[in-house]
């Protein structure tokens, strides 16, 4: 019993650290994005709030929390109020299956460096990412604003166009790792990261996952040039902040999952595993920011065309090819 309590405390500490680190990194990802975009655009970016503008995220958060929280007339209050929570919640939960190191031993017990090693880890990721669209669609619909509604619908449309290719692109990974567990998938990449075997799956996954995370060139649900602010048009203060947070946690999760599935997870020479994972996440995040600074936005139907007419067939064919090669050379 005592051991259980000790274990529980260790667990709590571990999970709190995980949550804290994810939130902290997500917050600072905003800073990284603003700085990096600024450098892409021959500017400095925030540099007044603290040295190098390092306190900028804190200023933003305090400001958002102390700002008035408005709910428009005719809005469906319940949905309006919880929608941002759905986005943030699903994004944070998704991170729970990302392993960040080998097991360590404390009190004679193995402490796994992952929040949860579900044997259906990958499916859990899909489930969460599908659920997150509820936040977008409900938030947009509930706010009783036309721009919000259009943004919400776009979010839903985007989900149904990319969820499939996202799932199908990972079938070859499952075939190679024989498991849905993220821990097993990292194990399977002991010798080579999967990106070397599965470049096509990698590409499909990257495109689909970017579409899922609603960033340029797929930021249609919020497309500020078209829909003002899309589904979060009516959100103010910290509720908007939660959407914001969700987006950046999503980037982190995307980086983590990409690292786990294709880049060997926490594996890497010399440095501790956690550091390697963070480096990989950071690189993926930088890539996403770079893309945002470079590309224009697709149109609604073009987005759907890309998903249905290019990515899904490609993913299916990729499965067939992987299967065939695996059977011929496998053993």
């Amino acid at each position: 019993m005592l051991l259980w309590i000790a274990g529980f405390i260790i667990l709590l500490i571990k999970l709190t650290i995980v949550l804290g680190v994810v939130l902290f990194l997500a917050g600072y990802l905003v800073w990284v994005e603003r700085k990096f975009l600024a450098r892409l655009q021959i500017r400095y970016g925030p540099n007044r709030a603290g040295p190098f503008g390092l306190l900028q995220p804190i200023a933003d958060i305090v400001k958002m929390i102390t700002k008035e929280d408005t709910v428009p007339d005719g809005a469906d209050r319940t949905f309006f109020l919880i929608a941002p929570a759905v986005v943030a919640l699903t994004a944070l939960l998704m991170f729970s299956v990302v392993p960040f190191g080998k097991d360590i031993t404390l009190l004679g017990q193995k402490v796994p460096l992952v929040v949860t090693d579900l044997n259906i880890g990958l499916l859990f990721v899909f489930a969460m990412s599908s659920l997150s669209v509820y936040g977008v669609a409900l938030g947009g619909w509930a706010s009783n604003s036309k721009y919000g509604l259009l943004g919400g619908i776009r979010g839903a449309a985007q989900m149904i166009s990319y969820e499939l290719s996202l799932g199908l692109s990972l079938v070859p990974i499952v075939m190679m790792a024989h498991s849905f567990s993220m821990v097993d998938i990292v194990q399977a990449q002991q010798r080579y990261p999967f990106i070397l075997f599965q470049p096509v799956a990698f590409l499909i996954f990257v495109v689909s996952a970017m579409a899922e995370s609603k960033r340029i060139p797929f930021d249609l649900p919020e497309a500020e040039n078209e829909l003002v602010a899309g589904y979060h048009t009516e959100y103010s203060g910290m509720r908007f902040g939660l959407f914001f947070l969700g987006e950046y946690v999503h980037i982190m999760v995307f980086g983590g999952i990409l690292a786990v599935l294709f880049l060997g997870g926490w594996r890497g020479p010399f440095l501790p595993p956690v550091v390697w994972l963070l480096i990989k996440i950071f690189l993926v995040a930088l890539f996403m920011i770079w893309v945002r600074g470079t590309l224009p936005r697709l149109r609604y139907d073009q987005l759907m065309t890309l998903g249905w007419k290019v990515l899904i067939p490609l993913a299916l064919i990729n499965i067939l090819v992987t299967g065939a090669i695996g059977l011929i050379f496998g053993g």
Partner: peptide
Amino acid sequence: DMARFGAEVMRPSPRQAD
């Protein structure tokens, strides 16, 4: 570069603007 003052986040919706 107004961003230096942390004021580059132009919000198209009045709800998020200060």
